[in-house]
């Protein structure tokens, strides 16, 4: 038997073409179009709409939803969900408000406190979901009740009064703007951009998508699934803390018990309108920002047109159906092309 020299295998052909999906999805382009149409329509019907006095509050109000939406997008990409963010916002904001009133803490301390509180609540969610191996929606329904209890206990009375204007940097006023743009919105855009880059261009970011696609395959491919899932909920918690600061700054000097109530559904609505698949594995934080902007545009537009403000919820519902329906149709068309 002659010894055969083993041929080295041919160098693998470097795959040409895209590995990543295109930087901007169709859903996002449509959203930009819809928002543009709405803004033009609103500008034509109510002359006051396209003024700084109307757009600045719109951007300020978008910020907390879009910010928590960044975390929620990551959570949903991993195939989970977090319905406790509204209650967590309440806990974070009441702790911070109390610290502002009673300890008169400075701005950085207040922000750190809020973010730490939110992070801890997110850690609890993450530990239960990643290591308790229980479906996320059930656990977060449960922790939402626990957080509400915690928040109400800290509230003690119905309201926290006399909150100093320490957080005005994030607020609606003159101190809260640079070049006419609200700081809260700028920070949100910056964090969204960072998250967009992280999710798209780093291995750690791609792991979230892998987990959402198939957690078992991801584990076999060497992804530390439980740690990544834990991280997703902790990040959401940290962002909830920052959003709580925005909420305090946007309000009056009084914080009441309804703070954060119903915000979890608004955040989820923004995420799904932005084109993130609730089944996991697909989504974009850019879409979430646009989704939040769209929801807020509708809310603000309904009020400016002089309609009943509760009608905006109806439009939010319709937008969810249309956005997700369009996504379903595109997915069906994609499936037909490939098969």
């Amino acid at each position: 038997m002659s010894t055969q020299t083993l041929q080295p295998p041919a160098a693998p052909v470097t795959p040409r073409g895209r590995v990543l999906p295109s930087p901007v999805t169709g859903q996002e382009l449509i959203l930009v179009g819809v928002i543009a149409v709405l803004w033009v329509a609103l500008a034509l019907t109510t002359p006051a709409f396209l003024t700084a006095g109307s757009l600045q509050p719109l951007l300020v109000a978008t910020a907390p939803i879009a910010l928590v939406g960044v975390g929620m997008t990551i959570v949903i990409i991993t195939g989970g969900i977090d319905v406790s963010v509204g209650a967590a916002m309440m806990v974070s904001s009441v702790i911070t408000a109390k610290a502002l009133v009673e300890q008169e803490v400075a701005l950085p301390v207040a922000v750190l406190l809020a973010v730490a509180a939110g992070g801890l609540l997110g850690l609890l969610n993450g530990l239960l979901i990643a290591y308790g191996r229980v479906h996320a929606i059930i656990i977060t329904f449960g922790t939402a009740n626990l957080f509400l209890f915690l928040g109400l206990q800290i509230f003690g009375s119905r309201t926290v009064n006399g909150i100093p204007a320490t957080l005005a940097f994030f607020g609606r006023g003159q101190e809260g703007r640079t070049l006419g743009l609200p700081h809260a919105f700028l920070i949100t855009v910056a964090i969204t951009a960072a998250a967009w880059w992280y999710l798209r261009h780093t291995a750690g970011g791609r792991h979230f998508f892998a987990i959402g696609g198939d957690p078992h395959a991801a584990r076999l491919a060497g992804v530390r699934v439980q740690r990544r899932v834990l991280l997703a909920y902790v990040v959401t918690g940290l962002l909830v803390g920052l959003a709580a600061c925005f909420l305090i700054a946007q309000g009056t000097s009084t914080l009441d018990q309804s703070v954060g109530s119903g915000k979890e559904l608004a955040v989820i609505a923004a995420v799904v309108i932005g084109g993130t698949s609730i089944m996991g594995g697909r989504g974009s934080v850019l879409g979430t920002l646009l989704g939040a902007l769209l929801v807020q545009t509708v809310t603000s537009g309904v009020t400016q047109l002089g309609w009943k403000s509760q009608l905006s919820d109806l439009f939010v519902g319709v937008f969810i159906i249309v956005a997700v329906g369009a996504d379903l149709l595109r997915a069906r068309a994609r499936a037909r092309r490939t098969s």
């Binding site: 559904l265 609730i278 939010v316 969810i320 997700v324 329906g325 379903l328």
Partner: peptide
């Protein structure tokens, strides 16, 4: 249509409530 139940009922929750 094939909507995820969570999304469909979240949307109708908003609509019916409103």
């Amino acid at each position: 249509i094939g909507f995820p139940a969570l999304i469909a009922t979240l949307a109708t929750f908003y609509a019916y409530k409103s």
